[in-house]
């Protein structure tokens, strides 16, 4: 029983972080139909920038985090300006290819600046053990869950209450009609990529706090795919619930079966989902009036 609770908590933490990374991914897909292969690198950059701020510039972590988020916004805007805008009117597949290029580029930049050695991260969130129902977890993991939940609530409010959020969904629905009401599609894309970079940076900071920084953090980008396919590529609640399910699944399989199966199980799920429910658990079905 203790093991079960332990695994559940671990799974929820990993799941929460996966959800954050998936959220940015879904956002980009929703507003522009682009699959962003550079999502993992956004996470990587977030973690490394925060690492630099705290370790190399000796800033308090609050200020460091704010700067990290600003850097993430800047990356989003730059990507829109330099990668997306020249590709307006080109087929979506070209843009997707460009994101693959972007991911290698970002990874190269990161290894040039920070090198390839994994490094320890000074924990900015207290990690002293907490006892819950007989299991012991680091407080940092609970924080990760809390922050992820908070982000999700904020996102939900943003999309249903704010003008920009509604405009973003409008662009996702019908780009031309959105333009006809004066919504600037370029601006919405910049918003979407910035927010995606910000969520990824927060996710990166949380992972780094738990396991340290290293180039392998970018692997989260790949692990996002089963999550979004499971939840539905264009569904924000899907990203969250998909993230938690995959996180838990990996933890249980790793704990009870082991043998490295936890690395593959999510991809097995991905294939099964694609066979039985290709739009995912919460994906948008096409509305048809009869």
């Amino acid at each position: 029983m203790d093991l079960f609770i332990q695994l559940t908590l671990t799974g929820l933490t990993n799941g929460a972080i996966l959800s954050l990374a998936a959220l940015g991914f879904v956002l980009i897909y929703k507003s522009s139909d682009v699959i962003n292969f550079a999502q993992g690198e956004f996470l990587l950059i977030g973690a490394y920038v925060l690492f630099s701020m705290i370790v190399q510039f000796h800033l308090p972590w609050t200020i460091g985090l704010v700067i990290t988020l600003l850097v993430a916004v800047a990356i989003g805007v730059l990507v829109e300006r330099l990668v997306l805008r020249p590709l307006i009117g080109e087929p979506i597949i070209s843009v997707i290819m460009a994101t693959i290029g972007l991911s290698s580029l970002l990874r190269a930049i990161v290894s040039t600046i920070w090198g390839n050695q994994p490094r320890a991260f000074p924990p900015f969130i207290p990690s002293k053990p907490v006892h819950i129902l007989g299991a012991t977890v680091g407080a940092d993991r609970l924080w990760a869950i809390g922050i992820a939940v908070l982000m999700l609530v904020l996102f939900n409010l943003f999309f249903t209450r704010s003008k920009e959020g509604i405009a973003m969904r409008a662009v996702a629905d019908d780009q031309q009609a959105a333009m006809s009401m004066g919504i600037s599609v370029k601006r919405i894309f910049a918003w979407a990529w910035s927010i995606a970079a910000v969520t990824a940076a927060i996710g990166g900071a949380l992972v780094a706090n738990i396991v340290g920084v290293g180039p392998e953090l970018a692997g989260f980008g790949l692990r996002v795919f089963p999550v979004v396919i499971l939840g539905g590529l264009d569904s924000i609640p899907g990203a969250i619930i998909g993230g938690l399910i995959i996180g838990l699944l990996e933890a249980y399989v790793g704990g009870y079966i082991g043998m490295g199966l936890n690395q593959v199980i999510s991809f097995v799920v991905l294939i099964i989902i694609l066979m039985v429910r290709p739009y995912g658990l919460f994906g948008q079905e096409i509305i048809e009036r009869v």
Binding site: T160, K163, I166, A167, R169, A170, A172, D173, D174, Q176, A177, A178, S180, M181, G182, I183, Q284, I287
Partner: peptide
């Protein structure tokens, strides 16, 4: 303001959200 042919409402948004999108500018 152009009201496009074929209505082109935002299908997945609610009526009120559609109207809010119209007031974007």
């Amino acid at each position: 303001f152009q009201v496009m042919e074929g209505r082109r409402v935002f299908e997945h948004l609610t009526v009120e959200e559609n109207l809010i999108a119209g007031a974007y500018t």
